[in-house]
Write a protein that binds this DNA or RNA. Structure first.
Lengths: 125, 125
DNA sequence: CATACAATTCAACGCGTGTTGAACTATTCA
DNA sequence: TGAATAGTTCAACACGCGTTGAATTGTATG
């Protein structure tokens, strides 16, 4: 999964998976939430206070991060009203590796001159 | 720019920049276009044919990638009807480094027990 | 019981986005 | 001059998203 050196078919599938995860992260407030989770902050109330956002909005963004598997949830052992969120390390490792390899600048190939006035192979036929 | 070990203020600014770039990439068709650009494919017509998408749609997505500086544009020297797109290597290097450091799994801190029934400091006061 | 509390769910609202088809620019070539 | 070519721009549509405020769920406490 999330390997970009395979066939075109699996590549397309992986690109959709990558896009799905990136879409969950491509939002300023969710990045701020993610950043606090990385620092060890865990409950909705503290995130809400730190970011000056209403708890229901925090809840909304957390559910997006949770839906792509990047964030885990756990209830307090003694008082189950409290809910603790945390980063899913395995998911983050996989995403970080996938992003790094897909967007590796060394993957950039030199210009392929198959198009243009000399090599017009792009006609719709 | 795009340094996540600085103050909270610059961090917030950078998070918005990061989110902006990620949003440009968080779309399956744009990832497929980006992937072909990485392979050296350059003109609209060839992208259009390879991805089975209409040229105006390719144009639309390319403009999004261009608006965040990840893609450059250049006209053919002899026949200026042909337009060549390419990856901006510097922008990709910066993004790749920023992503790798921000989403580094080793940044994950252990649970901070400042919330919960024992440490209820989250009251709105 | 009734109250308080943490958090989620729901309804509703603007706003932006991906897609489509048609019209339009700009350039080259006969 | 007129047709062909490569690509962009425009208008319009359905759809999803971020935000807000109120209502709701589930649990603990007196």
């Amino acid at each position: 999964m999330l390997n970009y050196s395979a066939t075109a078919q699996t590549e397309t599938i992986s690109l959709e998976l990558l896009a799905e995860r990136l879409k969950a992260l491509a939002e300023p407030n969710r990045l701020r939430i993610f950043n606090l989770l990385m620092d060890g902050v865990q409950c909705n109330c503290e995130l809400s206070e730190a970011l000056a956002m209403p708890p229901n909005l925090i809840s909304h963004h957390l559910s997006k991060l949770r839906s792509v598997g990047l964030v885990d949830v756990e209830r307090d052992e003694w008082d189950s009203r409290w809910i603790y969120y945390s980063i899913n390390r395995a998911a983050l490792e996989e995403l970080n590796a996938a992003f790094g390899s897909f967007f590796d600048p060394n993957r950039i190939q030199p210009r392929r001159l198959t198009c243009g006035p000399q090599h017009a192979i792009c006609r719709p036929e």
